[in-house]
Amino acid sequence: MLFPTRARAGSAPAAQPAHAPFAATLVTFVATALLATGQLYGVIPLLGAMGREWHAPASALTWMASAFGLGYAAGFLVFGPLSDRFGRRPIIVTGIAATAVTTALVALSSGLGMAIALRVLQGVTTAAFAPVAFTYIAERAEPRHRPTLLSAVIGAFLASAVFGQLAAQGIAAVAGWRAVFTVFAVAFALVAAALRRVMLPGRPATTGSPLDAYRAMPGLLANRRLIPLYLATPVVLGSFVALYTGLALTGAAGGAAALLTLRAAALPAILAIPFVTPVLQRVPGARRATGAMTLSAVSAALIGLTHPGTLGLALLLNAFVAGVGLTAPALIETIGGRAGAARGTAVSLFTFILFVGASVGPQVAGALSAHGLSVLAYVLAALLALGATLTLTARR
């Protein structure tokens, strides 16, 4: 790992660091976010080809997705606190460079067991980006650009559900499933180089023991100003993944092509989020989170109540996704602002809980989809309403 060097004794104090360049940071962080979370979804179109090659049942192949998700969530608890100790840029650049290697190794898998183990490792190294990137933006971006950057990165995480599958489908159709991971490995190497060039160097946020960040976790989880926000967090991506999984399991969206079309139909909302967020910047983060979760809750309830056709469903999904995309940066802003010097650790906990919720989402959909999309939509609406209530209490 690349560690920052210590200042020489007697040297002049370092000048106040400049703000991160807006356009370059936006492009590189969005590209990295699409690649990173795209690994969770990109394997889905490849499961059939993998199963045929390894003669494995579909039930076993689903672990190719779950294994990455487990490693991804666990890695958040490692890299965010480490970035408090060693600095943001060294952690992100080293982690993404390592991801280029772990992604290439998946392409060399000789069997399903080996591939699952490598997918866990790939998830862990990929996790170096998200929590540290959020903290870096909060610390180094110009204040007026922070909401836009946060929203753009969150939007890229959501858009990766479409990007990852489309990219994997296209590459696999031409060169096979192993080529997908090879191409992604090259892409990770390129963005690692870009991140090293674009991100500002900086001294570590803390100078104590690396364990200090982990010792701060119990206190953060017991902080009465943070508890409601952390409790509301799993609903954000959990509801997003559950609803789209439910669309597939219930057949309400039609076939696979129709489902992919509906996912793509939500892209206008995702693309609009970075432009809308600066307009809402004057509204306190907890209040924005309450309003955004309420928007998603109402949209989910209307999906269950109205049984809309394809066009109506696409419109309601846009509103639902807009709510999700606006909630996450508002929660990051609020949690980071209330965590003080433990900002990196607090954001890591947020990201961990966020993606644990995403991992639980398919299980919720699997348990409720047998009763139809309406029942699932009503349950998600209730959970989102509960989340909105929690963020409302956090304002106090």
Rank of each mutant, 00 (worst) to 15 (best):
T125Y: 01
G113N: 02
A100V: 13
T148D: 00
L190A: 14
F184A: 11
R140M: 12
L211Q: 04
P210T: 05
P147D: 09
S110R: 14
Q122I: 00
L166F: 15
L105Y: 06
I154P: 13
G202L: 01
A152I: 08
A152H: 02
Q122R: 01
T99D: 10
L108F: 04
T103N: 08
I154R: 06
L158Q: 10
Y136F: 13
T103S: 15
R178V: 02
L149T: 14
T148Q: 13
G208R: 07
A189R: 01
G111E: 14
D212K: 03
R144F: 00
S209N: 14
T182R: 11
A187K: 06
L118R: 06
S151Q: 10
T182D: 10
S151Y: 09
I137S: 00
T103G: 14
A98N: 05
F134N: 01
L118H: 03
T207S: 13
G202F: 02
P210V: 12
A172K: 11
R178E: 07
M199S: 06
V101Y: 02
L112C: 11
L200W: 02
H145F: 02
H145E: 09
A192F: 11
V180D: 02
M199D: 08
A189I: 01
R178K: 11
A130C: 02
I116A: 11
A127D: 11
S109H: 11
V174C: 05
L118Q: 09
L150P: 09
G155I: 15
A130H: 03
L211H: 04
L190F: 06
A156G: 09
A159Q: 08
A192E: 12
V174I: 15
V106S: 05
L108D: 03
G111D: 14
L118D: 02
V180K: 06
G164W: 05
Q169L: 09
T207M: 02
M114K: 03
R144L: 00
R197W: 15
T102R: 06
T125I: 07
A172L: 10
R144V: 09
A192M: 06
R140C: 10
G113D: 09
A138N: 14
G111S: 13
A194R: 02
S160C: 10
V120E: 00
W177N: 07
A98K: 01
A130W: 00
V132K: 02
G113M: 07
P201A: 12
V180M: 10
P210M: 05
A115F: 03
T99S: 14
S110W: 11
V101G: 06
G113R: 06
A138V: 04
R178Y: 03
A193R: 04
V191C: 07
L118S: 07
L118G: 08
V124W: 03
G113S: 14
L108Y: 06
V162I: 15
T182M: 14
A179D: 10
M199V: 12
A159V: 08
R119C: 14
A205Y: 15
A133W: 00
L166D: 05
Q165I: 11
A172H: 13
A117S: 05
A138F: 01
R196Q: 13
A138C: 04
T182C: 12
L149C: 09
V120T: 03
A175E: 07
T99R: 04
S209G: 05
V174D: 08
G208N: 03
P131K: 00
F129A: 12
R203P: 14
G202T: 05
G111L: 01
